[in-house]
Design a protein around this nucleic acid. Structure first.
Length: 318
DNA sequence: AGCCTTTGACCAGCG
DNA sequence: TCGCTGGTCAAAGGC
């Protein structure tokens, strides 16, 4: 590619990696994501992961959720939809093509929240550490079908599709040149169960996290590694609430936070979020937040600050 | 031999 | 209406 990000990789300094995810307007509606792409069953939801530079977020090697939580809590950011969790090893494509780290978020109804919590807890407890399987961090098989350098973004965005025959789920991952994932967007929901470990997909945490029998109907359950995501779909408003750490729009857990936006009018669509495989164990990047407050990241734009250090501290799956 | 990744080009949507 | 950006498809190469 010439023009894309490749060149960037080498030249960009990690020191100032601030990338902005501004493709869609969080506050309003996602133009592209919403309705269209799915073929009926799926609704589109997006999960954006970003690191906010503004936040004094540092990703220490031993970054643990707790630690993250503390940090989060201390920083009081309101208006932020955060999803915590996910991003485990932030290694991007080049290294692990099939294992893009991603975060999955789904829309959930408040009713399901409880369930989410439940799941979360379970997940937390069962999160294997190795999560990342070959197939995918979430347990699904993804195929990379495109890569593009987004304007305004220092990092190229990779497009992945679920390998499943009938599954139209797609996800976009932005990775920094150092391999850190700066943003992840999920579109659609899997209409099939995750590949079983024995099938080739590692049962890793990802799988555990994402076990969704089927999302199909009405069940908006969100499972996030460590947290559940709740979306508020009020008149068009899309607020995501993370319950894991307890983010109700204001607090973020810490690590990579993922923001998912559902633009699907189908509100009923269920969403499922998956945590990354690593979940708690791999604290790599984790902090994402969409802060609306300053207007800086108005929902749509996220700033991510990736430190090289974090990268070096980052541990790769394997 | 098969599958996946990478790259370039094309198309669509939005400003 | 034109331009720009994002997203997707298709082809080729590599593993």
């Amino acid at each position: 590619m010439g023009g894309y990000g490749d060149g960037d990789r080498g030249s960009s300094n990690s020191s100032g990696l601030s990338f902005r995810f501004k493709p869609y307007g969080y506050g309003d509606a996602l133009p592209g994501f919403c309705t269209s792409g799915n073929q009926g069953n799926d609704f589109d939801f997006e999960a954006n992961i970003l690191l906010d530079p503004a936040m004094d977020f540092q990703f220490p090697m031993g970054f643990s959720e707790e630690a993250a939580l503390e940090k989060c809590t201390s920083g009081s950011r309101t208006d932020v939809n955060v999803l915590d969790s996910m991003i485990a090893n932030a290694t991007c494509s080049s290294d692990s093509p099939s294992n893009p780290i991603y975060v999955q978020s789904e829309t959930i109804h408040e009713e399901n929240i409880e369930s989410h919590h439940h799941l979360l807890e379970e997940q937390k407890g069962t999160l294997p550490a190795t999560a990342i399987g070959r197939t995918s961090d979430d347990g699904y098989n993804w195929r990379k079908y495109g890569k593009k350098l987004i304007k305004g973004s220092k990092h190229p965005r990779s497009y992945y599709k679920c390998n499943h025959e009938n599954c139209l789920v797609k996800k976009k991952i932005e990775c920094a040149h150092d391999g850190q994932i700066t943003g992840i967007l999920y579109k659609g929901t899997h209409n099939h169960p995750q590949p079983q470990p024995g099938s080739g997909a590692p049962p890793g945490p990802a799988s555990s996290l994402y076990e969704m029998p089927e999302m199909g109907e009405g069940g908006n359950s969100v499972k996030v590694k460590g947290g559940s995501v709740q979306k508020n779909r009020e008149s068009g408003s899309k607020d995501i609430k993370v319950h894991d750490g307890k983010v109700d729009g204001l607090e973020r857990t810490s690590s990579t936070s993922v923001v998912t936006e559902l633009s699907d009018p189908l509100s009923a669509a269920q969403v499922k979020s998956l945590g990354t495989s690593e979940s708690t164990e791999t604290p790599e990047l984790s902090s994402i937040l969409a802060s609306h407050d300053d207007g800086v990241t108005q929902g749509s734009s996220f700033s991510v600050d990736v430190d090289d250090e974090s990268e070096s501290k980052r541990r790769y799956p394997v």
